[in-house]
Design a protein around this nucleic acid. Structure first.
Length: 419
RNA sequence: GGCAGGUUGUCCGAGCGGCCAAUGGAAGCGGACUGUAAAUCCGCCGGCGUACGCCUACGCAGGUUCGAAUCCUGCACCUGCCA
């Protein structure tokens, strides 16, 4: 597949664009300057942002110049959600998040060499602007009539809560970014998630009105599972890219657990496998679904991309032991320590009740919850099911006088280290 | 500033003096089945205690009452209409 555009389309990375006819030749041929923005709403990027990073990566590899914007100013305002108004974070907090996110983006793109990506922060051009200039030079180009048609804004206007002027202004701020990057860098394409369409077109319109130039926008589809649920949630929490917020082990497990119906699609989106390689996996899944070859491949590749090869080897080894038939008591001490390294951990001692151990390792939120789990038959110590809620840990439960392996349900594990 | 309506558990949303830790739905957790899938079925789902129980909770602070999420007063915040 020689066409970049066609290849992106095949991968399922293109949902909508402003003018495909004009855009496709540019994406395939020339060297465009392209930007995508990430707002620092948390200390880490998450699953949803990963799609954007993957897209940018492909585009850079195709020879385009990438500008990565981290929203020091937009992050202080907040993109309106359809549900409710955001609580403002302090400026200091936002600045801290900007730093973290900038670091997190680096491994995905090449920032050196003659086609190095450029990192920018919209605070640099927004902060010096006066409110008066903002209203006169930028606001004048926006029609409120059009602004209120944006989905999230429209939803909020219908709601009891309404919408603050702050959040209402968000799209102007994001539009301003595009105008700035067009002027400074000749940027002519902005990419984003499907839910960003309104914000992207706000920028496209602004550039057109202010400069008389035509620029483009391109969105990636929202990734969902077979029943239409948004992807990227594990135990109700977002899957983060930061190892502090989602351990590499949990991250790897998330991908391993992907349903059969989605795995092929996810391989296309999140890995750089070729159509032939993907077809092979598709066949493997069809013939021997229980082997989960495609899931393993997916988990291995994405975890390597995000957490590196070393961490991936560790979590793969851990997963094999923990989900294999291996009896943890049979493992050598070093193997056991390596394998459990990525698991959540707590401290305990001989004589501690299993209930307390579950709470100590955060496998259970409270003692009551721990008792219920035991009653449900969900708990095991070193792969031996616990049936008595009063059970106490003995010396032999701490393998190699060192740690015990606790399990809640089939796939939630933790180590209890002997204090 | 005036008038009207609203604020309930993770979310949505009932309750409108005792039977309310609070109906229902969603999400989540666990079990069974299987393949560390999907679908389905079953159980759990504020905290503490083995249990009769105790504590905390229905925006905040007071009050009425034997008894309040439910009534009254004040305050905060949100929404709509008017100015």
């Amino acid at each position: 597949m020689t066409s970049t555009w066609d290849s992106l389309q095949w991968r399922g990375l293109i949902a909508q664009s402003t003018d495909e006819e004009a855009l496709k030749p540019s994406v395939d041929g020339g060297r465009m300057t392209i930007y995508a923005g990430f707002d620092p709403t948390a200390a880490s990027l998450h699953f949803g942002n990963l799609v954007q990073l993957i897209l940018l990566r492909h585009l850079q590899q195709a020879g385009h110049r990438i500008i990565c914007l981290v929203g020091g100013s937009t992050g202080q305002i907040g993109d309106p959600r359809p549900s409710s108004e955001r609580i403002l974070k302090t400026k200091e907090q936002t600045a801290e998040y900007v730093d973290k996110i900038q670091q997190q983006v680096r491994p995905f793109l090449n920032f050196d060499g003659d086609n190095g990506a450029i990192m920018v922060n919209n605070l640099d051009w927004t902060a010096p602007m006066s409110a008066l200039d903002f209203l006169r030079d930028v606001g004048k180009f926006f029609r409120v009539n059009q602004m209120i048609r944006k989905d999230a804004v429209a939803a909020r206007l219908e709601s009891q809560e309404g919408i603050s002027y702050t959040e209402f202004s968000y799209q102007i701020l994001q539009g301003l970014d595009y105008l700035h990057l067009f002027r400074e860098y000749g940027c002519t394409l902005q990419t984003g998630g499907a839910d960003q369409w309104g914000n992207l077109t706000a920028g496209v319109d602004l550039v057109h009105r202010a400069e008389g130039s035509t620029v483009h926008a391109l969105t990636t589809p929202l990734i969902t599972d077979s029943s239409g649920r948004k992807f990227g949630k594990s135990e109700g929490n977002a899957v983060w890219l930061s190892p502090e917020m989602t351990s590499p082990y949990a991250f790897y497990q998330y991908w391993i657990n992907v349903e059969d119906a989605s795995v092929v699609h996810l391989l296309k989106v999140f890995t750089d496998m070729t159509p032939d390689e993907v077809a092979e996996m598709e066949q493997a899944t069809a013939e021997r679904p229980a082997a989960r070859a495609a899931q393993r491949e997916l988990a291995q590749r994405v975890t390597t991309l995000v957490h590196g090869a070393h961490a991936t080897e560790q979590v793969e080894a851990a997963s094999q032991v923990l989900f294999g038939k291996a009896d943890p008591a049979q493992l050598e001490e070093q193997t056991l320590v390596d394998v459990t390294g990525e698991l959540p951990a707590g401290e305990g001692q001989v004589g501690m009740s299993v209930v307390d151990a579950l709470v100590a390792t955060e496998l259970a939120a409270s003692k009551g919850a721990a008792r219920r789990l035991i009653a449900d038959g969900a708990v095991s110590v070193n792969n031996a099911k616990v049936t008595d809620a009063e059970q106490v840990l003995s010396e032999s439960d701490f393998l190699h006088s060192r740690l015990a392996l606790l399990k809640r349900g089939r796939k939630n594990m933790a180590t209890l280290n002997l204090a």
